[in-house]
Amino acid sequence: MLTEEERREIEEEFEHFDYKQAVSVDALKIVQKHRGWVSDESIKDIAELLEMSPAELDGVATFYNLIYRKPVGKHVILLCDSVSCWVMGCDRMRAHFTKRLGIDFGETSEDNEFTLLPMQCLGTCDHAPAMMIDETLHRDLDEDKIDGIIERYKG
């Protein structure tokens, strides 16, 4: 069941469009914001609200890389692995995460703190390598910097 709050936030989005379906991505993001990910149950609930079928909504949900259809850790690390960051060493950053947290792309750390995902070019190529953790951008990465950042999020 959607919470009151989720439902209200989704319904607010209706005002921007003439069609309910247009809100699908917003609705998915709203639920994800509250719950961390979008479960099958949520897909059904949102679909009902948007007068779509669950199959149709899931067709949308599974298209986007930032809609999580499986549980993720408390923090999601979106490590840019596009070309500028690659030139500037994102593979090393990835390896460092694996070393530090024991996770590779698509995995969640055992303590459920972090999920590591690859990310398309973050549009900050002049400060590559770059990543986002949750909604915060981190740039000009190197191993030391990553260590510091991980410490901050762990607390």
């Binding site: 921007h16 469009f17 069609y19 379906q21 247009a22 809100v23 699908s24 991505v25 917003d26 998915l28 993001k29 948007l50 949308v60 298209f63 986007y64 890389n65 930032l66 809609i67 398309q120």
Partner: peptide, 22 residues
């Protein structure tokens, strides 16, 4: 409107489908 990833959304006609929630 903020999207949820995927480079193809920048292609203008895919973008329209994205805005329509498709």
């Amino acid at each position: 409107h903020t999207s949820a990833g995927r480079y193809i959304c920048g292609e203008e006609t895919a973008l329209m489908n994205a805005l329509e929630g498709k």
